[in-house]
């Protein structure tokens, strides 16, 4: 089993642990992110609590996928797993969206969509000004790309020639109301990014997730967009097919066990 495969299974189990102890959360939105975040945190940027401030900047703009981020940050030693049971509780640090003021390892406070790309542009410019060779990665949801500010940022990334910035889109094909192609179609998605002046790659994160790291390791000449084809609820037979799990609160231990048994 590859590192990515093994770590993904572990992180998906951890996400269910937070879900069970916190009794709520957006699990399917977190599951589609797992391979993307593992590739960045463990393989590309190799983030640790010690090097966090000086390493690449990773911004989760789709903050509702935070369970995947929390599972990874605790696995990397940023905070104790004791926080799991305090998810969304007043005495805990883990909120329903990530806050950099409370949670060690969080680069950007998110929640409202369409902010992260522009903040990432500011950070990418800042790194260049400091002559840093580090990169900025910002992860957007596909539904998030409905926000006009995302495309304001795309215009600006092209103008400012930011070859140290990569936009990664978790294209899980679902947004709150239903399928992305019905609510607000994005296709032809790759050519949209290219027409804005970004170099754009596509990766199938289900059949060939290792390709993401290969792309990240190639030199970029402009801001890059990587469209990651994922599945909402990816890696779980039930979550991949049953849309009723997309918003869930007051989950029972029995229900979580059913999901554990359905991990792929």
């Amino acid at each position: 089993m590859t590192f990515l495969k093994e770590k993904s299974l572990q992180i998906r189990e951890e996400i269910l642990n937070i879900f069970e102890l916190g009794t709520r959360g957006h699990v399917p939105s977190a599951y589609s992110l797992v391979e993307i975040l593992i590739t960045l945190y463990y393989e590309k940027s190799k983030i640790t609590p010690e090097n966090f401030k000086l390493q690449d900047k990773i911004l989760l703009s789709k903050g509702h996928g935070c369970l995947a981020l929390y599972a990874i940050l605790s696995d990397l030693g940023f905070f104790s797993k004791d926080e799991y049971s305090k998810f969304c509780k007043v005495d805990g640090i883990l909120g329903g969206h990530p806050s950099k003021h409370k949670i060690p390892g969080v680069e950007f406070s998110s929640g409202s969509l369409g902010h992260g790309f522009s903040v990432a542009i500011g950070k990418a410019i800042a790194l260049k000004r400091k002559s840093s060779n580090k990169n900025v990665y910002v992860i957007l949801g596909d539904g998030e790309c409905n926000e006009g500010s995302v495309w304001e940022a795309a215009l600006s990334a092209n103008k400012n020639k930011l070859d140290n910035l990569t936009v990664i889109i978790d294209y899980n094909k679902f947004q709150s109301y239903g399928p992305t192609e019905e609510v607000c179609p994005l296709e032809p998605f790759q050519s949209k990014w290219e027409s804005f002046g970004l170099e754009c790659e596509e990766v199938n994160m289900v059949t060939n997730p290792e390709k993401l790291l290969d792309i990240l390791n190639t030199k970029q000449i402009s801001t890059r967009a990587i469209i990651c084809h994922t599945i909402k609820g990816q890696g779980n037979r039930i979550l991949e097919t049953d849309i009723s799990w997309h918003h869930k609160s007051k989950v029972s231990p029995e229900e979580v066990q059913i999901l554990r048994d359905a991990l792929i």
Binding site: F108, G114, H115, F117, S118, V119, A120, I121, G122, K123, A124, I125, A126, L127, K130, G148, S149, E152, A153, L155, S156, K159
Partner: peptide, 19 residues
Amino acid sequence: EGISEAHIVSMASGLSSEG
């Protein structure tokens, strides 16, 4: 930048967050 006030505000935040 262009006529993109929302973007500019967040971009400024990104710069400020890096000092």
